[in-house]
Design a protein around this nucleic acid. Sequence first.
DNA 1: CGCCCTCTGTACCGATCGGTACAGCGCCCA
DNA 2: TGGGCGCTGTACCGATCGGTACAGAGGGCG
Lengths: 183, 183
Amino acid sequence: MTKPAGVREAAIPALAEVFREHGYAGASLALLCARAGLGKGSLYHAFPGGKAEMAEAVLDAIGAWFEAELYAPLREEPDPHAAIGRMFHAVKGYFQSGRRACLVGAFALSDDRDRFATRIADYFRAWRDALADALRRAGRDDAAALAEDTVLAIQGGLVLARALDDPMVFGRLLARLETRLNG
Amino acid sequence: MTKPAGVREAAIPALAEVFREHGYAGASLALLCARAGLGKGSLYHAFPGGKAEMAEAVLDAIGAWFEAELYAPLREEPDPHAAIGRMFHAVKGYFQSGRRACLVGAFALSDDRDRFATRIADYFRAWRDALADALRRAGRDDAAALAEDTVLAIQGGLVLARALDDPMVFGRLLARLETRLNG
DNA sequence: CGCCCTCTGTACCGATCGGTACAGCGCCCA
DNA sequence: TGGGCGCTGTACCGATCGGTACAGAGGGCG
């Protein structure tokens, strides 16, 4: 029943961390192998497409995680306020209170964007639209603009928190956003 | 009187564009040379410290431009509303309405941050503090939080606009921010 | 003119890049 | 017990990496 899990899925979190820390260009095969604890042979057996396929797999895994943990609840949870609260909680945990960067956001800023354009766009579009849906069900008439503002502010918060090396910036932002959205 | 200008300053805009598009790791000497229209010899004569010194020079140039065009007016212009309006106008032009990424923000997201930590932090701290100063003079009691929110939102707007490949996202954001700040 | 000093292109360096080839290990199932 | 196969490490590939050495071009000035 349950897939044999495989080297592939087991390696993805480690690969994700390398891409997150060094960017696509900076993530060398040597780094990828070391972090994954695998030789080149194993890595290329699991990802015949090489570095590009590894990055795609990582983006897919991130997208799937956000879809399951954030977007689906935002769309389907009967109580939109609860779903929004859960979103902030998940975001805080995922980004380690601002210490961890957003891989998708980082890719969007460089020319790696072109290579992974649809995955990157889908990630943010799904987030923005799911949040707008929840806000609409919560009775906000400015749902679309507010959702866009929120998603974008989270990305900016990560940039600024890392730039100033001050996770509090991210924490403060999340608090401000949550009161703006949930009252 | 006026410095002989030199190859150095002439090359900086071209170098900046390469770092902006490809990141620090992705900006190879070959790309840097080609875009600057100089051979390795010339480039290393102007920047004996190599790639790292080029990036530092680019960050310094960006910092100086923002200081002169944005931060100083925010601090010194008698009419804070006018200075804030000028800031939005300059930001819109500089980032080409959201089509162009922020080099400093991109560096902040990867591990290049450590290498250029003080320059990156100074860029954002100066911006946030200058804007807070103007807001305080404009009579806002939430000046500090509002300034932080604004700087961070601009960075997030660039991420989201590039991710969705939709410059309108950035334009809408600037409009929203300007009404929030200047009424 | 002849010297010097700034700037330039080119050849070259060892290291590392992403990627491939392949021999063998161990496990599962017949 | 013995194939077969999923997985692994290692050696190797040409290309490119960031950086250096150096010979000369060019202009200013004595």
